[in-house]
Write a protein that binds this DNA or RNA. Structure first.
Lengths: 213, 213
DNA sequence: TAGGGCGGATTGTTCAACAATCAAAGGAGC
DNA sequence: GCTCCTTTGATTGTTGAACAATCCGCCCTA
């Protein structure tokens, strides 16, 4: 599969990993010459990869200056959470107990627990986000899923600004996600909505406090 | 301004116009060789332009096959309206009478009336969409505005499938938009929400019936 | 120290070529 | 006549080199 992938997407994939894993930090410039060399692709192909990453908002293209790993501003985080409130609350309001998407959410919860045991906090974060993506898929809208995916990818950029506090940030949400899921599986939508609302408030506050510095 | 624009964006702009105006019909393939020649840019630059259009979902890129003007399926239209219901109803619920965004909406209404007098129905459609974009901007979220913008651009692809019925489709909504705006300016949110709900149901039904053929 | 211009480095764009891939045309076998 | 396979032509994917345009930091000047 991976050998059959177009070069541009493959390059974009490895860059995406490096950004998410923190190897490439927000604000750093991605030199075309350097990277095309390192990734073994031509400059033109690398540029195409950049466009794919820009589409995910992981990278920012400034004309005649190059592409930079995106740096989230306080306003960005606030905006992301504003969207999350609208979309995810709508999802919770429409989720029915039998929905197969809830099983995916359950799987994500298990993955988060497992990663927590290994103290792999970035993976815990990823699993928690898959949880929310799964919740959003109860809307059964392709575009809404894409939107949430994009928002989650964007939020990861803010994770790295929390440095040593990764554990404190991610760990508590494992249980809260499970509790939220429990409510949804029991069809207690109003309580789930309230739990989600509090969840989002807390996460936004922590993230904005954490990386404002 | 236009002479200072990067070549790729300029090319994307003229292609966007041709697609929206109907010169390039959904389903048709955009040949790299032909278009790079016609637009006076190299293949590489044209490819960059394609990426920009693909980002707006106006164009679809199939690997090793080329790029095609997007063709909306019935499911696509349904999905777009599912998103609109969530986002736009949230916008109406949070809109306050004094919001400057409502003035933009008023301007869009006027533009629609003016275009209707000239029987420029495609322009009426554009103005109606600007109306909804303006409404969505009461959410004061950059990402939400982008989302609605993108959905509206996408919907234009479906307009052309309505052929001769453009007038019947667009004209009635001029008044309905004005009525909706009136309710919002008076702070009667619940009534506005109900009006919008009916509006979206009607528009979806017409659009899906109109182009399924 | 402030301001202006010079030069190096990087991006933006073009061009020509080749490899990889697909879709349609044509032929072999039944 | 039909199906399946191969071939072929056209188109995209990718490369590398070249040049123009632009920006940034440096040095020079006042």
């Amino acid at each position: 599969m991976s050998s059959r992938e177009p070069g541009a997407e493959q390059a974009a994939g490895t860059l995406r990993e490096r950004i998410i894993s923190g190897g490439l930090r927000p604000g750093s410039r991605l030199s075309e010459e350097q990277l095309s060399d390192a990734l073994g692709v031509s400059r033109n192909t690398l540029r195409e990869a950049f466009r794919l990453l820009a589409h995910d908002r992981l990278v920012e293209h400034r004309f005649n200056r190059g592409v930079f790993v995106r740096e989230l501003s306080d306003a960005d985080v606030a905006d992301v959470f504003a969207v999350r409130r609208i979309v995810q609350l709508a999802a919770v309001a429409s989720a029915t107990p039998g929905d197969p998407a809830l099983r995916d959410a359950r799987i994500a919860c298990a993955a988060a627990r497992e990663a927590a045991q290994r103290e792999a906090w970035l993976e815990v974060g990823s699993a928690n986000m898959r949880f929310h993506t799964a919740l959003a898929s109860t809307l059964h809208s392709e575009r809404m899923e894409n939107l949430i995916d994009s928002l989650m990818a964007e939020l990861r950029l803010a994770f790295h600004a929390m440095d040593n506090e990764l554990r404190q940030f991610h760990e508590p949400y494992i249980e809260r996600n499970e509790a939220l899921l429990e409510l949804l599986e029991q069809g207690r939508r109003d309580e789930a909505a309230e739990a989600l609302r509090i969840y989002l408030d807390d996460a936004e506050r922590q993230l904005r406090r954490g990386f404002r510095r």
